[in-house]
Design a protein around this nucleic acid. Structure first.
Lengths: 191, 191, 191, 191
DNA sequence: GCCTAATCGAGACGGTACGTCGGGTCTTGGA
DNA sequence: TCCAAGACCCGACGTACCGTCTCGATTAGGC
């Protein structure tokens, strides 16, 4: 009396096509940014029919989200460094995030990620939790002497959000500013 | 000693057309969000030729930026309230920003603003400085006992950025979370 | 030893769309003349995407040429009548060609055909060979007592060209003039 | 009791502008053909406001017609040569007309003239009477031994029309064909 | 020497159509 | 059943011209 997976005949989903699509999406995203990313372009580049994309993903944002999830977009996650000075480490890492750029059009990659997030719920969710917050949490937790909870989440959002806001406003983000940000959020350095 | 505007004969720019375009852009933006905003749609709604838009603005983002600058988008700026409890006031105002919504498609207005900012430098600049930061500064300055400078800027970016990041990730933002955010950035409440 | 059509999978050309386009083109051409014939108008009338036209024809002239080839434009070919008086028969038929008119704008259909021919090589070729010369040849051959060859071709061009030139110059073409033309080209009537 | 031209003050029509417009129209027509001739282009090239064109001519066709009338388009009228062999002279002259070409796009000038005629009554009238027929009449009259009248007109139309029809159909017009045409229309050579 | 009126250059305006791109759906034929 | 290929309808893109209009400057009579 168990629920049987309803049996299906015919070929199953082609893993090769899936990978080709994700690779093509990542490459085109990096080259031209989110706005110029198109389903047709992905299909062309991947050597795949458009329908094969539409069959499995509802939108270009979700293709991207899956690529992000599998770590294809930014390569292996950058760890926050550990030099003994938690504030400086955090500032360095945030600066790296801020200056993420791979697009041939000179568009910041971070800004493209934000555009993708604005357009796709799934991408938005993953941008925050997996791309940005995940590598940050451990170090931030130690820097704040806080095991977790709302304060830690709030601090992570504050740091990352500030970086995003600066990226959106196309303003320079001097390292002094970055340190000031860390101080405000993490707390003043102990004497 | 003065810069002479080079004199040109011929008809001057039609203010009526300019206003019709900005109004149409604001209305369509509010109704359908940034992604579904089109130059053709604006022109149609405004009763204007497309060329009249392209003549004066390079992209839909810049039309929107001008509308924002003139305060057409959100109406008169919301002031941060003053109830005597600066933390609660800030939290209330941030919550209002977070829940900004006018779109018929259920798209958050804040998310559309972020999309617009990702696509247009001018909009990005104004989103941060005029829409978000401006009404916040005075109250934040008093709450932090800080006259200005990098710390104040960093705090504003942190608060607003956190709100944006949450909006992008489509997560609920409980009022307790909001208070935690304010505490982390502004500092703990005095005993 | 035969040329293989390279096999292609995927949908084939829609005959329904092709016919709808040709019908729409013919109708609009007859109604408004060649100058006011537009690809957009054809697409609209045919209930078809513009791209479907551009996919198969390089220009509006070539759409028209195909319609002509299939006899859609002027209906079944008018035969030159046979009353026993070859000169009068030819004159009557030429007069009918001269006065071809279907356009709602009062533009002569012949003039529109000439405009189409000036704009499209294919239409030009067909105007001469299929629309005009074909029904004429048999009768002309008998009237001149000539089995064919350059003299017959020249005579056909002379008759039809004269009619076209008069149509272009918007001059009246009295039946006496028409008879004079036939006499000059075919030769004087036998006594 | 005559009709007085109603007295007007103010500047009179600028002859310089008129000439610049006609020159520009002729140059652009020769370079790009009738289809690509535009009022804006003429105005730009002539250094003239569009209104100055619209003030004096109803359409581009009429600008061209005026240029033709003043002999700007084809330079001084080519005379039919006189070598003693009227048939050969006529054939040579008709061949010259047939091969008229000045356009940078490779479009035959004759075909552009036909397009212009199809679009503008005035141009059509002048194409036949002034450009084509006028230089032909004298020689044709002598070749046919005919002082004028419907037969002469018909012969002229037949010769010129045949050349036009061949030009429209983009067919080669061998010199033997041309001689056959002359024979058919003018009559067989005397023995 | 004004005034009036028309001309001229320039070009903004509301439109229509251009030819292209991409969206999302549907239809083949092959595996 | 999936896949590649791609035709289909549709809507938007950004551009070119249309014909009308409105400017400021200029230029000729008529007073």
């Amino acid at each position: 009396m168990c629920v049987m997976a309803l049996p299906r005949s015919g070929p199953i989903r082609s893993e090769a096509a899936r990978l080709a699509i994700l690779d093509a999406a990542v490459a085109l995203f990096a080259e031209h940014g989110y706005d110029h990313l198109t389903i047709e372009g992905i299909a062309r580049r991947a050597g795949v029919g458009k329908q094969t994309i539409y069959r499995w993903w509802p939108s270009k944002g979700d293709v991207l989200a899956e690529a992000i999830l599998e770590g294809r977009l930014l390569g292996p996650q950058r760890e926050v460094p550990d030099t003994g000075d938690p504030r400086a480490d955090l500032a360095a890492w945030l600066t790296e995030i801020f200056t993420l750029r791979a697009s041939a059009d000179g568009e910041g990659l971070l800004r493209s990620l934000v555009a993708a997030s604005a357009g796709s719920a799934e991408t938005g969710r993953r941008l925050r939790s997996e791309i940005l917050a995940a590598p940050l949490m451990d170090r931030l937790s130690r820097a704040m002497g806080d095991a977790g909870g709302p304060r830690l989440e709030a601090a992570a959002d504050a740091l990352l959000g500030a970086v995003i806001l600066r990226a959106l406003s196309r303003e320079h983000f001097a390292s002094a500013d970055m340190l000031a940000l860390v101080d405000v959020v993490v707390g003043p350095p102990p004497r």
